[in-house]
Amino acid sequence: MNWKRLAIVFGLGVPLIAVLAYGFTRDPREIPSPLIGRPAPPFTVQLFDGKELSLADLRGKVVFLNFWASWCPPCRAEARMLEASWKDHQGQDVVFLGINMQDREAAAREFLREFGITYLNGIDAGSRIAIGYGVWGLPETFFIDPDGRITYKHIGGLDGPEVIHAKLDEARQGRLSGREGKGDYRSVQ
């Protein structure tokens, strides 16, 4: 009789504790993106040199799309590496495109000059593009295959050129990544 009651107590209590323990494996701040494998949301962005660029124009190429801001420390941390990686892939069927958001134009230009960045960069006024891509932390990087499909998303600073290289390759072949990548270093503003 007592054992039956005990069984009830443990039957209710243990799952509760288990669920709470499960919480340790999750990062509550993370927002998994539903966009991987879907067509990349189209946009037109005003580049820093004044020209306009539409994502549709880049169809047929692999697009490396990076959201950043000059005030974001992890963006600074990865900036040099991104530029170096761009130098490596330049001339192939790859386009690097940086989207600056929630920033002042002067500060953003200063950032580009400081890190000597040569790949395309544009300003997302009002963060409309960023919202379209479900951006919630900076930096965030999307890889888009030649058919205009998002194959991979990386949140936080990219760890090294190898990841970029590998993911560009996958995008070229249109292969989807099962899960998004996480650099632990990121700023959420």
Binding site: A18, A21, F24, T25, D27, G183, D184, Y185
Partner: peptide
Amino acid sequence: LPQAVRVREEGGSITG
């Protein structure tokens, strides 16, 4: 339990 299921690095960082 928390240790067995923990995947997050403590203090999560690039250097981790």
